[in-house]
Amino acid sequence: MSNRLKRLFAQKPKGLLSVYFTAGFPNLNDTETIILELEKNGVDLLEIGMPFSDPLADGPTIQASSTVALKNGMTIPKLFEQLQDIRQKTQIPLVLMGYLNPVMQYGVERFCQKAAEVGVDGIILPDLPLQQYVEEYKELFEKYNLSKIFLITPQTPEARIREIDSLSNGFIYMVSSASTTGKTVGLAEQSQAYFQRVSEMKLQNPGVIGFGIHDKDTFEAACTHASGAIIGSAFVKALHREGSLPENIKSFIQSIKN
């Protein structure tokens, strides 16, 4: 695990707030501003989405932001260029999230090397299956000291959760319910039982809950069952509002934390 992730979970084992945003949205060069403003407002962990034309696990909000980001000219090389000096400005843990195909075309080793070089701490690739990771990519991720973060869902069998736990070295991304991103139905009783079940498994990795977390209530509910929670679509929507980026970010994060 990267030192930054290790330090974060050691210092703040409960109630940590993670935010996802799509790189290149709303404007191509907003990446640094969004990172620094989120940190300034007390966010603990950031997931930077690498936009993809066909994001299967995402709902309409994140897909729409990805379409805009691609139109704006966002690419993996462009994102690395924007992150080149980021470690001189902030030590907030950064996780890159995206789909396998663009990473494959960039070259998986080159991607890991570059991510490590700019100071990225972890990678989430939802469509890279466990088996392929173990057979083809695990050594690379370890070589460059990048945490590989896997998803689990309410339908993931216990044995598979144990396997994922043994292969993870950062945190486990607990998808709150069977859904794509951006559903705002709240956390059903079923989800609570699943959070409870996972919590009782005493996994070696901390869990962070995502999907459907969109306001103070859902954030706090999720935090009672895990180390923290991730807000994605609701934040991406907030960036759309009138007003400056720093104002929008500040008011959104305050609505969650206060």
Binding site: F52, L70, Y99, P102, Q105, Y106
Partner: peptide, 22 residues
């Protein structure tokens, strides 16, 4: 097409240099 991933399968697919499906 070039080697890549589409709809859950590794295969040949038409895409941009950056791996966006065309």
């Amino acid at each position: 097409g070039k080697d890549g991933i589409i709809h859950g399968s590794r295969t040949l697919l038409m895409q941009t240099e950056d791996g966006q499906i065309t």
